[in-house]
Design a binder for these strands. Structure first.
Lengths: 356, 356
DNA sequence: CTGAAAGCGCTAACAA
DNA sequence: TTGTTAGCGCTTTCAG
């Protein structure tokens, strides 16, 4: 009793162990009769192949390690979902670990994953500098893709064009008639975040519009958004458009504006960033920049499979995905027929179609 | 070259393969000198133990399969995070798969996980009936814990006391002075959802309060909440408290009330259910019932480790965790000092402390 | 196309 | 306490 082994299946089918293995693992070089005989025998005995034995022998576990700084962050689960779906198509599974944003823990977890012989790694680095050597070391052992906030290591990367996203927001407000724009930002060590303010300034200059006297930085919170908006109305009463570094801040801004009786979007338009769940249910619904999370997961999976199945030693590739503008009620609508406008990507190509 | 094996470590340390194994895997019965020698040799060679070989030999992979109907659902990632953290303490990792809510896919994924020789499974069933045989079959092979919405199979279960959560909401409204309560619900095949309406009715009867003429059921959406609230004000203009089946519905209700100039919470109080992100940032902030998601993950991990490490054949246990009331601005505050009130659990005991 | 044999790297009996 | 010896269940040469 216990699970039947391949040897028993072979005996039941009247063939050798080798033939049974070939028949079940789909290798060529087995007569149709033998193949059927083996498959029937396997079905009769309720045989299930032992993935661990297979992995030990074949040096392939068909497992991909996925390391995330904080699994519960609303951003990552959607990436993981698409990653899982994409990898599943190649019979690969995800071994999921959480670094809790700690570089030391991150290093341990990566070693755990490598000990388990994962075929590849997808990593969202915990820290822009401290994660670097860990990632380089890991990348020397297995194919590795960095996601979303790459450190300076020579690996494949899939990330999002935050800068282009801010451009979209500014362009949209300008197209809607805004001329005095302000920015409410947040402090962060992540380049993905700090670049948003720079992008805002650049784009104003591009349009030849006046720069705001200050671009205040606070936290990613409703309270900060409300506070900053209050100050802003005081500093620059003629402001007619506010670009926010994320949706929470934007919600705070909306609330402060309402408290002061300013009509959104007629008097002042507001944009967010991220398109988290409540952007859609805020009042008014928030125009925001959506990050293409599913596409990010898929891009990572593509980079990985390409490197595992094909050219293991090609130079690193960097896929940057365009963010998109989601028009809702907090800005003056532009172009009645379209609701979504896509930014141009740095590296288009593979990511053309969209399945979700 | 390539990775050094334990054999090479043994040679380097001048001991046998077996001793080297014992020294590194922490088995008793090795002299301190030998243990040190082996560990130094391992460090010198950069030895890393091969988890696959170990698993094949020891019949333990230290992997737990986790099957979720929809990873990106805001509810599950937090459960998974806590699950991961708890299992990590016992050196176990999570193999994560998504059934997409499809019982057929669910069956395939469970078989994948079993083929990979997971030591145990945590399953959120895709369907209250169709998942049953799959789960029974799997539970016959490895320890299995059902999470959150159990099917009728004799396994360990960790779930949440939704009924008690609704009781909390009703009691809170009553304590705040409400006397004419209504319920806005949603249709669903899940018992966890349908039981909410029943619990509402029960609790009104318990308080001797009048039952509403209808308890409308719609979808989990803002639009439905707004629609239902509009109808409700028409049917029963004297309503002074509305219990909603989830937060999205409550947001819709709040919006409809504001549109009609009804003051929340002074004229009408509103409660939600789930405590998703935007409950906190709605206007007014939503009083709601929080599901103890982290605790749920931890409970599942406890059930699992108990069954793996200890008594594999004890009868199934069912842990039901209490929901808690989170008081915010959409209801009249009760008891100025406390903000959170915890319901009594069916099965208290193990889940007393709280770390997150 | 098929089978026999040789392990993948490790742990678990068993004997010393 | 240590070493020797068998494998875990499978894939993959290598002959035939």
């Amino acid at each position: 009793m216990g699970m039947p082994t391949l040897r028993e299946v072979a005996e039941e089918a009247g063939v050798s162990l080798a033939t049974a293995s070939r028949a079940l693992s789909g290798s060529r070089g087995v007569t149709v009769e033998n193949e059927q005989a083996v498959k029937h025998a396997a079905a009769r005995l309720g045989y299930r192949t032992n993935g661990i034995a297979r992995a030990l022998r074949s040096h392939r576990t068909q497992m991909v390690g996925v390391l995330i700084p904080h699994i519960a962050d609303p951003f990552f689960p959607r990436v993981v979902q698409e990653l899982e779906r994409s990898l599943q198509r190649d019979q690969r599974s995800i071994l999921l670990v959480d670094s809790l944003g700690d570089p030391t823990l991150e290093r341990e977890r990566i070693n755990d994953l490598l000990d388990r012989q994962v075929d590849a790694l997808v990593v969202v680095p915990a820290h822009p500098q401290e994660s670097c050597t860990t990632i380089e070391l890991a990348a020397a052992t297995v194919p590795l893709v960095q996601l979303d906030r790459p450190v300076a290591a020579p690996t494949d990367v899939a990330s999002i064009d935050h800068r282009g996203g801010i451009y979209l927001a500014v362009d949209h407000l300008v197209a809607g008639g805004c001329r005095r724009l302000s920015f409410v930002g947040a402090e962060s060590p992540l380049e993905a975040v700090t670049s948003r303010r720079d992008a805002f300034i650049e784009r104003l200059q591009h349009h030849g519009l006046p720069l705001p006297t200050t671009t205040p930085l606070g936290s990613f919170s409703v309270a900060w958004g409300a506070e900053a908006a209050g100050a802003l109305l005081h500093t620059d009463p003629s402001v007619d458009g506010i670009v926010c570094a994320n949706d929470l801040i934007a919600i705070g801004v909306l609330r402060a504006l309402r408290a002061r009786g300013r009509i959104v979007p007629d008097e002042i338009a507001v944009t967010g960033f991220d398109d988290v769940g409540f952007a859609e249910v805020s009042d008014p619904p928030l125009t925001t920049i959506r990050q293409p999370v599913s596409e990010l997961g898929r891009a990572a999976a593509e980079l990985l499979t390409a490197r595992i199945d094909a050219d293991e030693h090609r130079p690193p590739r960097h896929i940057t995905l365009p963010a998109e503008l989601v028009q809702r009620g907090s800005t003056t609508p532009v172009g009645a027929t379209t609701t979504r406008v896509t930014a141009t990507a740095d590296t288009p190509g593979t990511m053309g179609e969209q399945s979700q």
